[in-house]
Write a protein that binds this DNA or RNA. Structure first.
Lengths: 176, 176
DNA sequence: CATAGTAGGTCAACATGGCTGACGCATCCG
DNA sequence: CGGATGCGTCAGCCATGTTGACCTACTATG
């Protein structure tokens, strides 16, 4: 690690399980997450959307063609809550759904061109902040960042999250 | 963007700034944070409290004697929102407020014995998860975790967050 | 093929926790 | 003294989560 943890004070001591270290993690996680989330609020407000819309948009953009049930598992909310958000997004022409080919009960979701435009704008805001943090902290720190975070996620969910990364989406391509 | 992995730029740009790495960070941060927050829900529900109560309780426990305005800055909500939460906590005998000594307009907040008991229980749940993640990831990873997160926080807020760690606890406080 | 199970949509009611706006005090400070 | 500050409160609205019940369309199975 590029010993770039300068602004965070002393590096983790052998006693990193002590209360102070735990609290530091809790607090940085809280404020770091809050900072990311707020970073997109202006863009959303300009469209009359909320954070719930952002989350749905993000995952649909991330896994084009995902089924509603898959999105529900990722968001961990009820289908009634999702339905409001999803129908907003469809009404605004940001998301469209197609009947599944293999299983015609499914509705496979994807972004429209306009939806992709908005998602790109939102992602740019997130990216700017995250990229700056990565650059400041150094490459090795990024590995540590990932390692701790993935340890926080319960094993059942972890596979789901890591699966987001597999098989990059290609615009225009179809996902199974 | 996401400048293809195939094309090597003029100067090999750092791998970790590529889109996939940014998205991985966004997603792990989201799910890691969600896992931590949910980890306390059972305990809160058993007392009929919500996450907003937890956040207030946490910071009051962290900085006994803080003023309402300081808590407001940390939580970044309006005083009307806070007032509901705070009056719940006071009504339940978990938090008490005293008139400030230097400035008698202030109300300095602290946990009651019962409030400390609940906070300890909530902290134990958070700690278990965080400690396991720290242990799995290793000591060096923890430093990276902190470094990236603190880079996410806007500079104005960063000082506020880091100040939580400084021992300002009043005399009489027992901290190892 | 009948039927049970699954994917999804919808209606209705309610809880939580944000927000704005408008006041009212007590207190501090120039 | 008079304005600014710290705090509390009333009143109403909005976003987003919850349960529970019920419906259609489709799949899978005995």
């Amino acid at each position: 690690m590029a010993d770039a943890s300068g602004s965070t004070g002393p590096t983790a001591s052998p006693l990193f399980l002590r209360e102070a270290e735990i609290r530091r993690g809790i607090e940085l996680l809280y404020f770091g997450h809050a900072a990311m989330v707020r970073g997109a609020d202006r863009i959303l407000a300009a469209r009359g959307l909320g954070r719930a819309h952002h989350r749905a948009l993000y995952f649909i953009g991330r896994r084009p063609g995902l089924a509603v049930s898959e999105l529900l598992r990722l968001l961990a909310i009820t289908k009634q809550s999702l339905s409001r958000v999803l129908s907003d997004l469809q009404r605004l022409g940001l998301v469209e759904s197609r009947v599944g080919e293999a299983d015609r009960r499914q509705r496979r979701l994807r972004l429209t061109a306009e939806g992709e435009r908005l998602e790109a704008e939102l992602f740019a805001a997130l990216k700017e902040r995250m990229a700056r943090a990565y650059a400041q902290a150094g490459q090795a720190a990024v590995g540590g960042f990932w390692a701790v975070l993935s340890g926080l996620i319960p094993p059942e969910d972890r596979a789901l999250v890591l699966a987001l990364d597999r098989e990059g989406r290609k615009p225009g391509g179809k996902r199974p």
